[in-house]
Design a protein around this nucleic acid. Structure first.
Length: 422
DNA sequence: TCTGGGGTCCTAGGACCC
DNA sequence: TCTGGGGTCCTAGGACCC
């Protein structure tokens, strides 16, 4: 049976989350900013219409924001993560199988519904998600994931489609492909679009008509797959149980630059604690740790230094990882450098259950495992950071820490911040 | 003054082996 | 002086995604 995919994509997701709890924002220009209130990472339609670009630095669009009274929010990941879970749960209940592709997108396998009216089904999804979560979504339906992406894009932009477009065996498929620019095709970024345009290829339609071997030479197997997908031949199936991550990283840009070792160590220790938590959450242990620190990449002299530690036994123990992080950081750190960003990468991950103890290992592993489990359980129940390592700093007023001047309340994840209905 | 964070996959080339 | 062929594994870098 040839597959059919539906791509459900939340409209301007972070902005929509803010609007659910603040209805006065409807119809007004709204943006959500990245960490340190740095760049615009989500924009309402009104904000896009004003000319605010994705990723625009806040300081460069300041006058635009003021002139149009744009509502700008700091990122509220606790809120967006929780709203995402609600949307995904709703979709899970409505489809035979689902692949959660990102925080605001999911592919559904709708092959079994091919005799039904898929447009009506799409409308049903839209209505239900909106009703149960308050989040508006668009639905694109097609024979391949790449085509479903395209259908979704058109559904979102075209008023006539009313948020849903089914391109399955559609006579309008060619017309749709003609309307899609190269760089809007899933898997074609700026670089490849530029290269293809030199050969006179400008739309998804001209891409779909390319010769197999020719595109393979230019873009490798991925390019050949994209072309096939555009032709309606499915190369990417539905992946409903994504494998554990192969690497885990935590990094931040500081609000103010750091030049003291102790401050840098406090910052990095915090990131290591968070990375170890993520590692344990997916039941993995790491063989390799990398610590890096860098200066401001927008200044003339850019410095980036990284040190690697091979962990003798794969571990997810925070205490142990903090020790190695300290060693690495001593190799990285230099006086008289003003650091703007630092982070940790954990790689060569293995399943925590299959860790072999080293011959000369002196660590009491069962004991440390028990401690970590207790720590994670308390923090899950009582809120993140209830119990934490002193190494990561107890003060929250250091000048380098990430700031969020315009953060909305944690409406759905904190009892003290739940909206009241009077 | 002020510019995010976290991932994936593929490929080419080097090291090494028989 | 002459200097094969084929395979695997690993790594760095490039390109992409949200």
């Amino acid at each position: 049976m040839k597959p059919i995919f539906a791509l459900v994509d939340c409209n301007n997701f972070y902005v929509s989350c803010e609007r659910v709890f603040n209805p006065k924002l409807a119809g007004k220009p709204v943006i959500v900013l990245s960490n340190n209130d740095g760049c615009a990472v989500a924009r309402s339609e009104e904000a896009k219409a004003i000319g605010i670009k994705m990723g625009a630095p806040a300081f460069k669009i300041r006058s635009l924001l003021d002139a149009h009274s744009v509502h700008a929010f700091s990122s509220n990941y606790a809120l967006y993560g929780d709203m995402s879970r609600r949307v995904m749960q709703t979709l899970t209940d409505m489809a035979p199988s689902i692949e959660i592709y990102s925080i605001d997108e999911a592919f559904l396998d709708v092959s079994g519904m091919r005799h039904e009216n898929l447009t009506a089904y799409g409308q049903h999804i839209r209505k239900t998600v909106k009703q149960w979560t308050g989040i508006p979504v668009s639905v694109g339906i097609a024979r391949t994931k790449t085509l479903a992406k395209i259908a979704n894009r058109i559904a979102k932009k075209s008023i006539r489609e009313n948020g849903v477009l089914d391109l399955t065996d559609s006579p309008f498929l060619e017309e749709a492909l003609k309307r899609i620019d190269l760089e809007d095709v899933w898997g074609i970024g700026r670089k490849y679009a530029h290269r293809l345009k030199k050969y006179g290829i400008h739309t998804a339609l001209s891409l779909a008509k390319l010769d197999d071997r020719w595109i393979q030479k230019l873009m490798g197997v991925n390019g050949a797959r994209i072309v096939k997908e555009l032709q309606g031949i499915s190369c990417y199936g539905l992946d409903d149980s994504p494998p554990p991550k192969k690497g885990i990283g935590v990094s931040r840009t500081f609000y103010a630059e750091i030049d003291k070792f102790d401050d840098l160590k406090t910052a990095v220790s915090g990131y290591v604690c968070r990375a170890a938590e993520k590692l344990r959450a997916q039941k993995s242990a790491a063989n390799v740790m990398m610590i890096f620190a860098a200066t401001n990449r927008f200044k003339a002299h850019y410095d980036f230094h990284i040190a690697t530690a091979a962990l003798p036994v794969p571990t997810s123990d925070t205490t142990e990882m903090l020790r190695y992080a300290d060693q690495c950081l001593r190799q990285v750190y230099k006086e008289d450098i003003r650091y703007k960003k630092a982070g940790v990468f954990l790689s060569a991950l293995v399943s925590a259950e299959r860790v072999q103890a080293g011959l000369f290992d002196k660590t009491d592993r069962p004991r440390s495992k028990c401690l970590m489990e207790t720590l994670d359980r308390i923090n899950e129940k009582m809120g993140a950071g209830t119990v934490r390592y002193a190494a990561a700093g107890l003060a929250s007023n250091e000048t380098w820490r990430t700031i969020s001047r315009q953060r909305s309340p944690a409406y759905t994840t904190d009892w003290d911040q739940i909206p009241m209905v009077a």
